[in-house]
Write a protein that binds this DNA or RNA. Sequence first.
DNA 1: GGTGCGACGTATCGAGCCGATACATCGGCG
DNA 2: CGCCGATGTATCGGCTCGATACGTCGCACC
Lengths: 220, 220
Amino acid sequence: MASRSDVLELAVLGLLHEAPMHGYELRKRLGAVLGPFRALSYGTLYPSLRRLSERGWIAESDRPDDTARPASRRARIVYELTAAGTERFEHLVRDAGPASWDDDSFDVRLAFFSRTAVEVRIRILEGRRSRLEERLEQVSNALARNRERVDRYTLELQRHGLESVQREVRWLNELISAERDRPAGPATAPPATPPPAPSSPPSPPRPRPTTAPADPTSPT
Amino acid sequence: MASRSDVLELAVLGLLHEAPMHGYELRKRLGAVLGPFRALSYGTLYPSLRRLSERGWIAESDRPDDTARPASRRARIVYELTAAGTERFEHLVRDAGPASWDDDSFDVRLAFFSRTAVEVRIRILEGRRSRLEERLEQVSNALARNRERVDRYTLELQRHGLESVQREVRWLNELISAERDRPAGPATAPPATPPPAPSSPPSPPRPRPTTAPADPTSPT
DNA sequence: GGTGCGACGTATCGAGCCGATACATCGGCG
DNA sequence: CGCCGATGTATCGGCTCGATACGTCGCACC
């Protein structure tokens, strides 16, 4: 329910919600949303478009996209949301389960916050925070458990990682209180800033993780 | 040359360099090295062990691993490094190309710093830093280019991401000068701390990226 | 005035990764 | 004594990535 696929689905649907687009452009815009790094490959995008199409969320559009020039039409395939797709997108945005606290997922959620109701936004931010707090705890435990048996460098890495997570928690706290101060968010048309830029934002640097804290498939 | 596979290869070889081990245990230790999150699945590990085995880097060991109890032997398969594997590991450690500046790669490299010559360590740290500086530049450009057309939340995300990267650069700078002050590193036996803990370090929290800056498969 | 190059654009293939799952044995606990 | 959870090895389907193929367009350079 929250693999890369689902994130991709949300992102594609969200972008097409803004405007019909063809694959190549989607990919560029996607880079901005997923984080400019980890932009996905065509080997992922095209099959994915086909899947979404089969499920009926998206469909090829006839309109030449740029109506002005009928002559030079290349073989581009413009996709647009279907009615079902729109509904699906709205459902995905509204229903923010624990999956949306994940690293990858969270960024994409943030990218569509303008389309998200205030209470959902808060739920996501708080969920993300609690996720990070779990990590914090696990790492601290781990650190305490074998403080002296660990390599100098590993220790440094852990320290840095721990600090980064703490900073993100603080950042989330700020976002949350900003959200709380906000009057009351209309579900779909947020007051904040103008709707997401129609033009593609290149997107930010990923602080990049420095070793995650807790997965522990392995108990102990 | 630097896909997940190669990182995995380095990590497995490195762990077996410390002591022979069987799959299950490798996986746990791997979690500590790769970053507790992103621990790899068995669907990855076992096929990978087979590949390494086919290439002759590792081999099954006969020794019961825990020689004490001959009776209760379960069907565990203990692997150990072959001579070729040892050589391969040392080659990998020595030869730190641009691939080792990557997010995933870098952590694993750090984990084996104790086995790495000082000049190589510095090369890796500086490489990592320059990689981050590239991102910094790209994101700043991007930010400058469309400062006002972007969503409030996207902007926040970028800000936070930018800051995280800057902090990591500072962290790297500290590590680099610490390395410079170090007398002169014997190639394989570093003076720093006792050799890597024989027991498994739980590993640190990944600050977690907040949107990477620059991939740009798409040239602007 | 051709020709080469880089952007745009769609698409597939092989290799590999992930999550779930299947099996099996062991130690302990009620 | 039966059940559960940890230890162990292993595979399968679905998806992803990176490389690559193929093709068009505009235009800069000589």
